[in-house]
Amino acid sequence: MRFMMVVKASKDSEAGIMPAPELVDAMMRYNEELAKAGVLVAADGLHPSSGAIRISYPEPGGKPKVVDGPFAETKEIIAGYTLIEVKSREEAVEWALRMPDPHGFGEGEIELRQVFDFEEIIADPELHARENALRGRLVKDN
């Protein structure tokens, strides 16, 4: 099963200020540890939201509304993510707890989210049947 560790933005990450070298080192060591455990699937950092846009659909069926960044609420902005492949939710939690504090200054926040994944439900025959039915529909729609 796959999990995404989502690192939230901070004032510094939004201002485009690079993290302190110690933190960069700690993050690199952490990523190496993930890789050496064979669980790392992908990891990326994102540019500040000043270069981003938000697209919303305020009216159902209407035209999209485009808003340019930067966006105000840093806690609602993502600064990066790490995707891991593990055997259990507990294992994902354990890895997430080992990630270094991503920002310092009391601003660090990591969100752990499970990725929808067909493989994980294959062990359950009932869920498997449902998944296959769903997949059959998806294939027909394409």
């Binding site: 190496e32 455990a37 064979g38 055997k87 493989e119 294959i122």
Partner: peptide, 20 residues
């Protein structure tokens, strides 16, 4: 046809081996 645990485990071991 599919026994995913073994595949995942093999892939994980392969990835570890590639690192070490």
């Amino acid at each position: 046809w599919i026994r995913p645990l073994l595949c995942q485990e093999a892939l994980r071991l392969g990835r570890i081996l590639a690192e070490i």
